[in-house]
Amino acid sequence: MIKEKEIKKLEEKCLKFRRDVIDVLHEKKTGHPGGSLSVCEILTTLLFHQMKNLNPANPLHPDRDRLILSKGHAAPMLYRGLAELGYFPVEEMHTLRDFGSRLQGHPCMLDTPGVDMTSGPLGIGLSASIGIALAFRLDGRKGHVYTVLGDGELNEGTIWEAAMSAAKFKIDNITAIVDWNRVQLDGTTDDIMPMGNIADKFKAFGWNVLECDGHCVKNLCDCYDKALAIKGVPTVILAHTIKGKGVSVMEGKSAWHGKPIDEDTFALAMEELGGR
């Protein structure tokens, strides 16, 4: 069980990371604010509380837990967390999407220390996670795989191929987390491609399903513990989130999926995120 003091620390980190990510996205005038803000607590709790054997001095440690950010467009928030852990200097965030930068537009496992799997094209991260999980099993390794999916990403057919195969292979060393922010690039998920009852869909594919408030540190951490206790079937945590969380004008707005941040919005964001 996560302690109150740690919850407070993680919440402070989330506020700082939101601020820093908005700052960089404003500076670079490119990148994806909406999905970065919605996934903030998910990534922060994984990197700073849940995952085992992360070691920036030995980023390829074979027994480390793996993090697959299948919704790779939220890369800025992942990079901010990895920088805080010490995989690269925090100042390097200001090279985001620059030519020659280690911080590519979408995560690249070859370029960025701490990135376990390349991502960006939606729908294939869960499949890669299954390969990692099966390799762990073959080699008797204890590592656990955390796979973060977008809800829009669930439109991709490969996700459901992966879902059925995870159940077939009785994978219990993956925890998938859906950043369920209900907004995709062109509009709300209900408008663009209604997914119906996502919990029932995963259950029908043989998964154990948990739900939580994806902005509640305690809720998320409790779910991770519950997921680890389930054996013989894969677990997905449906984390209810708000796209653009933390910046009032961005919240729930598809327009902020990938829009450059103007001066007025930036000023408001900094005020709301305690930056000024």
Binding site: I132, L134, M164
Partner: peptide
């Protein structure tokens, strides 16, 4: 499910 198979293969390859 060829797409999933190719992704699973990549996960294996990323793990030695």
């Amino acid at each position: 499910a060829e797409s999933n198979m190719a992704g699973i293969a990549a996960g294996f390859a990323a793990t030695g």
